[in-house]
Every structure is written in C-alpha cells, then in structure tokens.
Design a protein around this nucleic acid. Sequence first.
DNA 1: TCAAAAGTGTTCTTATTACACCCATGG
DNA 2: CCATGGGTGTAATAAGAACACTTTTGA
Lengths: 251, 251
Amino acid sequence: MNEFNEYFKSAFTVDNVIFGFDEGDLKVLLIKRGEEPYQGKWALPGYFVYPNEDLDAAAKRVLEELTGLRNVYLEQVKTFGTVNRHPFGRVITVAYFSLIKISHYTIQPSSIARKAKWHSIAEVDGLAFDHDEILEACFNRLKWSVRSRPVGFELLPPKFTLTELQHLYEAILETDLDKRNFRKKILSMDLLIDLDETQEGVAHRPARLYRFDPKRYEQFLAEGFNFELKEGKKKEPLKKKQTKEEVASSN
Amino acid sequence: MNEFNEYFKSAFTVDNVIFGFDEGDLKVLLIKRGEEPYQGKWALPGYFVYPNEDLDAAAKRVLEELTGLRNVYLEQVKTFGTVNRHPFGRVITVAYFSLIKISHYTIQPSSIARKAKWHSIAEVDGLAFDHDEILEACFNRLKWSVRSRPVGFELLPPKFTLTELQHLYEAILETDLDKRNFRKKILSMDLLIDLDETQEGVAHRPARLYRFDPKRYEQFLAEGFNFELKEGKKKEPLKKKQTKEEVASSN
DNA sequence: TCAAAAGTGTTCTTATTACACCCATGG
DNA sequence: CCATGGGTGTAATAAGAACACTTTTGA
C-alpha cells in the first residue's frame, strides 16, 4: 500500500449554494471569510470535510456551522477539482445547492464566517476561490430543475399571490412569462389551494392568496412534471452590469 | 496552516461508466481488477487522480490507461464519498459517463485491468466498491439525458435503420415505443439523412439506412430538445434476474 | 379620478396519442 | 409459401401560444 501514499495527501471540501427569494429578487447566501485564504472576501459557505464524515453530512454540518441554518435539504450538483483552485494544496470541492425561505431562518454567522448575508444573484461577482463558477453551475441547475418539478414551497411565504409565484419563476428563468398562460398552467396542475383571502393594504386591487397543497407538491417532487412556457423576451442576462452606453444603444 | 494538516490525508479517484450498444443490448464496459483491493472482481475503470492533475483530465487518462480508449468525451455525473467506501483510507470518487460505438474501438486492457469487457447492463451485479450504485446513478443520468438531447451518434454504426435507433431508445428507457409515432417524431426533427440504401442479406424486407446529420446533431446537443413519447408498457426493470417461479407467476 | 396591479377567455396552431394492415425479402 | 421484420396514415385529443380589456383598491 506504500505505492499509494502519495495519493493520500489531498483534501476535500463542500460548498453550499443556498438560494432564497425576497422582494422579487433571487438571492444567494454568502459569508464574509474570517480566515485565510481569501480572508475578508465573500464566499459560498463551505469548509473541509472531516476524515470520518460522509459528504452529504458534511454539507449539512458546514452549512449549520457557518450560518446557523439547520434542517436544510441539500442536493449535490457538481465537483470542482482544478489543480490550483486552493492555495493550501490539492483540494477538490463538492458543490451542493438548496432553496429556503429567507424570512423563515435566522442567519447566525460563526467566527469563521465573519458575516453571512443574502446577495442579489445578479450582483454577485468576484467571490473567493472558484466560487463564481460554482455559483453559476448551481444557478444553471436551478433553472433546469424548475422545468421538471415544482419550486416555490421552499422560497415563498406560506401565503402568496399568483403574481409573486410568477415573479419567482421569472427570476429563476430570467425571462418574462405571459400572465394568463402562467395562471392557466399553474392552476390546472391542481397544486395550489385557494385560501379565499386577499391581500390587505395594497394600493391596487388586492390579489387572492394561495398556498401549496403539500401532498401534491410531494407527489410532483417525486414524479416530476413538465413545466414549459414559451419564454417572453429575455431579461438582461446575469452578471456584467450594463454600462449606460449599452443600455442606451439597446433600444 | 498546521491546523489543516489532518484534512490533507485523503485521496480521490475517478470512475468511468462507458455505455455501448450492441446486438440490441445496452452494455457497460467493465474491467477485471488486477490488483488489490477487490482483485479479480469486476469494476468500473477508475483510478487515483494524480496530485497535479485536473479531474476531467484524470478521467480521460484513467480510461485510456485501463482500456486503451482515447478521445472519448466524458461527462461528470456525481461524486460518491461515504466514509468507508475504500479499504485503503478516505477516498471519494468522481463518476463520469460516456457513450461510444463498441465496434469503433479496440479495447486494450492494461495490467491493472486484467481484462476489459462489455457487459449487458441488465446482468451486471456485485461490482467492486460501491460501483453498483455508481452505475445505477449513471444509468439514470443517461435516461434523463436522452429526453433532452440526441443520442445514438455515439452508439450506433455510421449507417443504421430506424428500427435499430428505436431499439436503442427502448434499451435506454426500458420501455417499448410505438413504431409509427417514433418514426414520425424522429424524422420530423430533420436529424437523420436518408442514405437511399437498404440492408442486404436479411430474411425479410430490407430496411432503409440512415445516418445522422452532424450539423443538426451538434445543434441539438448544444440547444437541447424535448423528446418525449408516451411509454408503452414497461419492460422488466433493471437488475434482479427473475427466478423461474417469478417468470411463471407473472403470466 | 388616477395609478397600479389583479383578474379573466378565446381562437389558432401544433404536438401527441391510438391504432392495423400490406410489403419485400430469404429460406 | 411462409416467417420475419419493414413500412405507412389518419382522426381525435390535448397542450401551448398569442393576445387586450375590465376590475378593485388606496392615495
């Protein structure tokens, strides 16, 4: 077994991409690193996997330690392993993603994470390590997964309007959707329960409130479905904020 | 950096799930292990990643070293990392999958791989390590990916009949498909070129031969599509060969 | 009375399903 | 002449796309 010793000098980490939705905006939870490397930089909440710890368990533990979030369902997305991605040595990282209700959780950053904060996904850039790339891969995964299973239960408050749900889909898919077709489709799925309540205190006609039917939701999670609506015109793509010139010339 | 030393005692490997198609049967390439652990057992072709080697590069190298296969496009699927999956220590493995034309390649097993051989996927069981689980995950990925992008160029001979293509889809999806609907759909995609040739020497009406239009094929690979045809009755599920009793009682 | 967002239906087009018989060849 | 797999069409249904005006509320 001597001949293999040289291989046992590497480490692995897990990194978590936690998506939330708030104020019509898709967000991702980042920590400000409290230690080297990349001290003081924003990064995905991640850390080394313990020698006697399964990968999935490590992802859960690390998330809780860094942000205080517990009982979050995490799904493995992809492993990143270029040679020099970590200054301390050979470290590959397994990326996980999840969706949570922002208002539902209190974020409590640990000392390793000096701060933990939600960032609008469009504004994130210049993260530590290769975390920009990891975030992009997980966002793409989210976009895909939205087409074949329900999303929203994890991201919206318990009572929500159809417009809020539509805005969530639009934020994830980075498109505009037709209001009537969206409603027709989502209502025909028998996934929403009409609460017979309406918004209050809004300066316009108050919207009906809905909640998800948990049984149907679970069922769709297990079986999948096909949610495709032709995209309207594309929203501005992620990243790279436009200059004023570009905005002007894009008319 | 001392505090991190304990993390740098792990290793990682890559494992390749190579699918092929032959005699109407979906196959997977396995090696017979020539060294410990699991010496003499069938396993996926995989090995340790070198300290200075990117993951994707390692997958390519390992595949070539063990089987002689070169220039195979490999796609990362999932990472497996339970604590005791490898008897030598903490080793996580990154699984890759690919599709190739069996007849197109000559398999040349290395000394580490005493043999390399194609196995019908339904008959594979009892592989080394957690490779049964890895194979299953990759097979599921293949099933999924078949619905959103073309498959066959990598698995079929340059000239093939529509029935052969249909059998390929049926083998992957483990279903039966309606002949007329399959043909209508696949032909309407403008993906196949009719060669104006027919089979020879078959004891029935000879079938027309087709080839893929490489341009369209690339285009679909890049953009994806939606290939869904309602499944006929399910074929027997993978694994667990039926006993005679079960066969008898299933009438 | 105005601004702002909610809510609502129909027509057109396209895709999917279900389904059964004749054809060409080799043995 | 028979066994084998090749090849073909249509009608019914379902799903998706396009599209504009009225309603309700608070300010």
